[in-house]
Amino acid sequence: MENKIKIEIKNLNFSYDEEKYVLKNINLKIYENETVCIIGENGSGKTTLLLCIAGLLKYEGEVKIDGEIFNENLRKKMGFLFENPDDALFMPRVFDDIAFGPKNFGFEEERIKEIVKESLEKVGLPGFEERVPHHLSFGEKKRIALASIISYSPEILLLDEPTLALSPVSKENFLKLIKSIRATKIIATHDLEVAVETGDRVVLLNKGTIKKVWNKSEVKSIKYLKNFLLKEPGER
């Protein structure tokens, strides 16, 4: 594994309502091109942690990307795959959704057409440019949502429950697809199979604190991880 630190989280605390902290004293270093899986029960704070890293929430503490604290220029380096693809597909045509990022990040107009085509090919849906998002299946929407972030080649992918609600076959294909993309990846999931299969490291989050971090060699099996979840039950 490369040893350059890509993301450094220091003393991160976050609360939605200034009463109850949803994330408590999070410290974590993530290396370049590493895949880190965050597992934990519903409500343990996985999504919130991703949103903080992406600079989409205001937090206490520090998150550094390539040594820089958050600023607008860092957005281009990060791609956020939302749990529900409908939240990410807000344009009338698939083309516009995939072109949305590149346009905002100032890619050349002529390049954008090619980029959209390439992105669709990468996610296995060539020729979908003119399709209308609300006519697509859930699995297709998920792929288009992924295409809409890889279109601007982010160095960091933040993936929130990427396999949730996918059929077993779609799930396997989607995981393959994610693995094939070269980037630093943080995957929030409560699907332990995903963690075992993709994680170079696995982080266990419980009620907003990091309870454990395993290296790949330590994560033996789904059953092994499950035992830890049972020992640290969530709120629900």
């Binding site: 956020f80 939302f82 807000f90 990022g101």
Partner: peptide, 9 residues
């Protein structure tokens, strides 16, 4: 949705 838009610049 707004977060999704902001995250894409």
């Amino acid at each position: 949705v707004l977060k999704a838009m902001i995250s894409r610049g």
